[in-house]
């Protein structure tokens, strides 16, 4: 039996995006390309293309989208979201997709490490001597490796 290579089963991804993350109207994209043409991340890494990401969602290809690393290349500058004539919240959409990916256990290894760091130390990156050297030069006190408050808050949240 021949069948379409177009996916039909995961309509719920769009529903998920709308209901859980408030990203609506993805289908209303008419692919004008304004998002991609003005994307600074895309300039650096052509593999990242917000227009293609939306197109894949419209074509029900969320599954393969979540498997790819490209959604992690967005710099969250909101240029695309600002400019989309259809008012699609593209940056919010990318964030939502990342959340979905993480829930499915898919994320680049660096992201997981970073998340663990935030959870355990309340910091995005581990401190090293370099930071304190610079601070000392500027007459600032050295930093504590762990931000207790942030760790506590994150614990409470979860």
């Amino acid at each position: 039996m021949v069948d379409s290579n177009l996916q039909t089963e995961d309509r719920d991804v769009l529903q998920d995006l709308a209901e859980r993350y408030g990203v609506e109207g993805v289908r209303s994209c008419y692919a004008c390309g304004t998002c991609a043409a003005g994307c600074p991340a895309r300039r650096v890494n052509p593999a990242y293309n917000p227009r293609k990401i939306i197109r894949m969602l419209v074509l029900n290809e969320a599954k393969s989208l979540l498997e790819k690393d490209t959604i992690w290349l967005c710099s969250s500058c909101y240029t695309c979201q600002e400019r989309c004539p259809q008012g699609i919240k593209i940056t919010d959409l990318i964030t939502a997709l990342r959340n979905l990916a993480v829930q499915q256990g898919r994320s680049p290894s660096g992201v997981g490490m970073q998340a663990n760091l935030v959870r355990s130390q309340g910091r995005l990156y581990a401190l090293d001597e370099f930071d304190d050297k610079k601070r000392k030069k500027a007459g600032l006190p050295s930093l504590s490796p762990q931000i207790e408050e942030a760790v506590r808050l994150l614990k409470e949240e979860s």
């Binding site: 021949v2 069948d3 379409s4 290579n5 074509l59």
Partner: peptide, 21 residues
């Protein structure tokens, strides 16, 4: 194919071959 129309074309945004049966 098998009594059903099969349409092949390129999606010009993804630059991928698509087919719909």
């Amino acid at each position: 194919t098998q009594g059903r129309p099969l349409i092949r074309f390129e999606d010009l945004i993804l630059h991928e071959e698509k087919e719909i049966c």
